[in-house]
Design a protein around this nucleic acid. Structure first.
Lengths: 242, 242
DNA sequence: CTGCCGGTTTGACACAGATCAAGGTGGCGC
DNA sequence: GCGCCACCTTGATCTGTGTCAAACCGGCAG
């Protein structure tokens, strides 16, 4: 097995304590989780779970990035989910998943055996409520993503993706406009429903227009945030009629 | 207001009793719901809820079809949800929705005021559990839809859509291969991320190939189901290696 | 019966993005 | 330090689908 064990962290000191599926749990409930959890680690590029494979565990991502993706017969691939720390993997009540889960960076999971977790879920409204909330958040994100996939141009798709990175980093840290791409060009293409060549060309275009400035292939800054926002195709603002 | 009142039906006799958000409720819980519910009706084409508008009610679709859709600045539109009887509208904990909800046929809703419903939700695990399950079902559907939008050709998109209709009708009734399109060409295009012209051309193509046979613009039969399945681009079967 | 109108079909053409192909770049093992 | 390999860039060309335009069909109001 490709499973490495990682040092145990108490739930109360866990970095994802307040955003994961356990976010609403009280001390007693955390104690129960603490007893049945285990950590699993995966190297960048490793599969965490294949489509159709029996789902023995459900997990929260503690650290790293994983992707959910679907593949057509002839190899065409579409990413359908991007998992960041605190996101949940697995569906209580189902024996399998209908997509592949792959570690994009090194990943650490906080895992529970599926059956005991399902029992706990039935008895612990704090967990099922949080799970419902997380599913609805993901559904909202999926609907934005559907608009992007169905109607946006390559330029708009990439601008939207970068804007997403900007927003996420400005939540976490201060307003440092220095960003790192968490995915390869190929993964970005899979995310956006494009080819890697088109992604590369659009990056070049943004660079030529002075909107982005790259220090190397993975790191860049946003020089013209207004232009970036404009390129996303989304409603620019909240009500200024021109 | 465009709200018509409809004759009251007891929850225990409700046609969507076993699939809607109330599916897991016991008699006592149904009594509570019965007291706070009201029916609202909308004519085909009417808006049920605009994006950003204050969400006063959450509802279950009792009868009819409604769509969820998102629009870009310049008018490009993408359907992001198709609501059939038993589906739920509204998000507990949010004051607004981020998409438009429109009645495609005449629609009857079973509605609850949002605030009281949220209180009930916090106290009634049977409701929150069912809501979570429904959100996760929708998420699964959204992920299939993302694969379609991002990677499938126009032909595959339309074949997949028709196959969806076939499956749904064969669940409900017997194996009658006589189907009715629940949407206009324009709505189908919005569903599939295409233009209405392309949808029309693909229908014509299927007709010319003898896969579909139309009695009029809205009604048809599937003459060659194997060819239809083949055209979806999905995994044809469960493991036969050729 | 006639004319209108929403929904649909069909055609001609344009173009965004896919595909195919050829390098370029940088990090890492030896 | 050399060479390999994964990742990325750029160019040339092709093609599926969008766009624009015209006409068709069927139902319904008058």
């Amino acid at each position: 097995m490709n499973v490495l064990l990682t040092e145990r962290v108490k739930c109360s000191e866990c970095p994802i304590r307040h955003r994961a599926v356990c976010a609403r749990c009280d001390e007693n409930e955390l104690d129960i989780l603490d007893q049945i959890k285990s950590y699993r680690s995966f190297k960048a590029g490793e599969a965490i779970q294949w489509r159709g494979e029996e789902l023995t565990h459900v997990s929260s991502v503690v650290a790293g990035i994983a992707t959910l993706s679907k593949t057509l017969d002839d190899g065409r691939m579409q990413m359908v989910g991007l998992l960041l720390p605190s996101d949940f993997i697995g569906r209580p009540g189902r024996e399998t998943l209908d997509f592949d889960v792959v570690a994009t960076s090194d990943v650490t999971l906080c895992s529970f055996e599926r059956k005991p977790f399902e029992r706990l879920l039935a008895e612990t409204p704090h967990i099922s409520q949080r799970l419902a909330e997380m599913a609805m958040d993901e559904l909202d994100a999926a609907r934005d993503w559907m608009l992007l996939l169905g109607r946006k141009t390559a330029r708009e798709k990439l601008a939207t993706f970068i804007q997403m990175l900007v927003q996420r980093s400005s939540i976490e840290g201060s307003h440092i406009p220095n960003l790192t791409l968490p995915l390869t060009r190929e993964d970005i293409a899979s995310f956006l429903g494009l080819t890697l060549e088109t992604v590369s060309r659009q990056f070049t275009q943004f660079r030529k227009e002075g909107i982005l400035e790259f220090s190397d292939r993975r790191n860049f800054t946003v020089n013209d945030h207004a232009a970036l926002l404009d390129a996303t195709g989304d409603d620019a603002d909240g009500g200024v009629i021109t």
